[in-house]
């Protein structure tokens, strides 16, 4: 009898404990990210620059995963939306003298608006077509940035005022880290709301979602718009951090960079991408500098890693950790039983 009644409380306990564990882990990791610049070797300016780059990639990958991991539309044109936000903010600052702090958000609005239009166009398409459509829209955008030399200075490069007076990397790190946290919190809240359920339903099966009363059109467009708006925001940061902007920021390689991080981090988890971005970005940079005598070797390692993960661990880091969590949980009941 006792064994029959036991499962119910244990399941409840398990749910609580696992969500509490997630929360604690998240807070610990957040604190670690905040403390990181004071832990050697991250005390150096160069390492702090890596941290900025890693946090930027992390934030981008989270925004990317919001679309790719939930409604299952892979935005191949992601970098172009980043670039659009970057150019909007940069041009506002250069031509109209608008402060980057406002310009970044205006950039986000412009990118979000184009995301809205793109979302409306790609809606009609399925799977890889939607992805490629977004890619082509990105290519067209990049072509405009390249050819409208009078506006963007094209490949000559645009000198952009920096966000802060200082050239110290540390304040930039905390700005982008705050943006990353904000993105994670906002997007997770959306995912936990009824929107999230709808996104997942659409991502898994559009027909079934429609049958159960979800209007896929609306949710797809909302999702795409939000993701692109965040991309635009990070683009603004990119422009005002590096101080120089060329249309190359919109190139497909950058999308692949973000996409790789999102996938190795684990689709549909948001936090997986945010975590893995740090070791991955910094690891690749370190490898590049230490293997400078054999240029390109670090990229080969990167490619091999990507392929191994895709073949043997398609769930990425998130999948791995989820299994580890499940494994921990599966041990708990036996402990309970042992104590009883």
């Amino acid at each position: 009898m006792a064994t029959q009644t036991a499962p119910a409380p244990i399941t409840r306990a398990r749910v609580i404990s696992s969500s509490r564990r997630t929360l604690i882990t998240a807070i610990l990791l957040g604190l670690l990210a905040i403390a990181l610049p004071f832990i050697p070797p991250f005390t150096g300016q160069d390492y702090q620059r890596y941290l900025v780059v890693a946090a930027l990639v992390a934030a981008e990958a989270v925004a990317f995963d919001f679309t790719g991991g939930y409604i299952d539309i892979v935005n191949f044109g992601f970098a172009a939306f980043v670039g659009l936000g970057a150019y909007t903010s940069a041009l506002l600052a250069v031509d109209l003298g608008i402060t980057p702090w406002i310009g970044m958000f205006l950039g986000a609005i412009v990118s979000g608006f184009l995301g809205l239009l793109t979302g409306m166009l790609t809606l009609r398409l399925r799977g890889i077509y939607a992805a490629v459509m977004a890619w082509f829209i990105g290519l067209a955008l990049m072509g405009l940035a390249r050819n409208l030399v009078d506006v963007t200075r094209g490949m000559l490069g645009l000198n952009v005022p920096r966000l802060l007076e200082t050239s110290d990397n540390l304040p930039y790190y905390y700005i982008i880290l705050a943006m990353l946290f904000l993105t994670l919190i906002v997007l997770s809240l959306i995912i936990r709301s009824r929107f999230g359920l709808a996104f997942r339903a659409i991502g898994q099966n559009v027909q079934a979602a429609r049958a159960s009363g979800i209007n896929p059109t609306r949710f797809l467009v909302i999702n795409f718009t939000v993701s692109c708006a965040f991309a635009g925001l990070f683009g603004g940061f990119y422009a005002h951090y590096y101080g120089i902007l060329t249309p190359d920021v919109m190139a497909m390689v950058h999308t692949i960079e973000v996409l790789t991080v999102a996938y190795i981090g684990g689709r549909g988890s948001l936090w997986g991408a945010a975590i893995i971005a740090f070791p991955l970005t910094i690891g690749v940079e370190l490898m590049r500098t230490s293997l400078a005598n054999l240029p390109g070797l670090h990229l080969i390692f990167y490619g091999v890693l990507l392929m191994l993960v895709m073949i043997y661990q398609p769930g990425g880091l998130a999948g791995l950790l989820r299994r580890a969590g499940a494994w921990l949980d599966s041990r708990k009941p036996t402990q309970v039983k042992a104590e009883a």
Binding site: P40, P41, T43, G44, Q45, D46, T166, S167, D168, N169, L170, P279, G283, L286, M287, S290, L291, L297, H298, F301, Y302, V304, L305, L308, V309, Y312, Q313, L320
Partner: peptide, 25 residues
């Protein structure tokens, strides 16, 4: 996955520079 990560890390640890002392910007 661990092996792949190890491969990556060992590739850079070989000649990675020792941790620099903090340099004020």
């Amino acid at each position: 996955l661990a092996a792949a990560l190890a491969l990556m890390v060992s590739a850079c640890s070989g000649s990675a520079t020792p941790a620099p002392t903090a340099v004020a910007p």
